[in-house]
């Protein structure tokens, strides 16, 4: 047995291709830009204020936590900035400043640092923060109420609540083209379907996120929504509507793909994404919330360790 072949690993020094966490962070922020810029064009300075405050306060919370916990300063990796940016994308433009500051605290401290910082969080930090905010201050995510004083040149009703309260008649005026081009009420960076898809494809092509998760998430939404739509088309909207409204696209490309809370193997990734999509539509159509993406993502984050058990057998066992 002595001359059995073994894996050969060369010894140090290894070469490093130069990539760092910060690179991933800056690419993610870059990918989110088109959607955010459109939101800022639509809602003006208040939207700019929310996004800028979300990014800077997230970084300052991280810095503060580093100081208190006597850790090396970690805002250089850009992860806090990404969390702030994603959080800002999901907010209505009229979010009060203290709501943003509390939200980023929840994301950075409760969502991420308590679990040991980057790579240790079992849930998407942004989803944790939004979920806590939704349950604590319902009014903040009532886009109809928050964006009451805006008069833009498209139907100023939040598509998902209109659908849930009044059925598909209420959304018949909203075309898929409008949804794709961001001509819908919603979070600052979550309405521009086309921009989010381009950003997502960019991240997939550059290898920063896994296509398996995003695609299976969208497939889950599509198939479930289609089944509901076939069963009762007066009450349940079609699959395309569900994909382009609410947080679906942000969820599929930016939240579900969070690295430490998603699976690593191929089949688990498909199951994880698929379950997220199915849950999203189940919550939207049967639950009490107009948009189920945030809760669906927390659910799949929760079952992620179980999916991770599905893995190739170790050799020889």
């Amino acid at each position: 047995m002595l001359n059995q072949k073994k894996f050969i690993v060369s010894h140090a020094p290894f070469c490093h291709d130069g990539s760092r966490i910060s690179e991933r962070s800056y690419h993610t922020m870059f990918a989110a830009l088109p959607a955010i810029i459109l939101g800022i064009c639509q809602y003006g300075a208040p939207a700019m204020g929310v996004v800028a405050l979300a990014i800077s306060s997230a970084m300052l919370w991280e810095l503060a936590f580093n100081r208190v916990a006597k850790q090396p300063v970690s805002i250089g990796d850009g992860n806090a900035a990404v969390i702030g940016l994603l959080f800002g994308m999901l907010m209505p433009a009229t979010m009060p400043w203290w709501g943003v500051v509390i939200g980023t605290m929840l994301a950075i401290v409760v969502g991420k640092q308590i679990f040991g910082g980057i790579g240790g969080n079992p849930f998407s930090p942004v989803a944790v923060a939004i979920a806590i905010m939704m349950l604590s201050w319902k009014g903040f995510f009532d886009f109809d109420e928050m964006l009451c004083s805006y008069e833009l040149d498209f139907a100023m009703i939040y598509p998902l609540t209109a659908l849930k309260n009044f059925g598909t008649d209420a959304i018949s005026a909203i075309s898929t083209g409008d949804l794709l081009m961001g001509r819908q009420v919603g979070g600052i960076g979550s309405t521009f379907g086309l921009g989010l898809i381009i950003g997502g494809l960019y991240l997939i092509i550059r290898g920063f996120i896994r296509w398996e998760i995003s695609v299976s998430f969208l497939v889950g939404v599509f198939v479930t929504a289609l089944l509901f739509n076939i069963s009762d088309s007066a009450k349940y909207a079609g699959p395309v509507f569900h994909i382009f409204t609410g947080y679906t696209l942000v969820g599929a490309f930016f939240l579900a793909t969070d690295d430490s809370s998603s699976p690593v193997n191929c089949i688990p990734m498909f199951l994880y994404g698929l379950l997220g999509g199915v849950m999203t539509v189940l919550i939207r159509n049967l639950g009490v919330y107009a948009d189920g993406v945030i809760f669906a993502i927390l659910v799949i984050n929760l079952v992620n360790p179980i999916f991770d058990k599905i893995r190739p057998k170790a050799l020889g066992k």
Partner: peptide, 16 residues
């Protein structure tokens, strides 16, 4: 990062 956080903070204060 320090500059980014600082500049964005000022921008947000101005916007608000």
């Amino acid at each position: 990062p320090y500059c980014l956080a600082g500049i964005l903070l000022v921008v947000s204060v101005l916007c608000y």
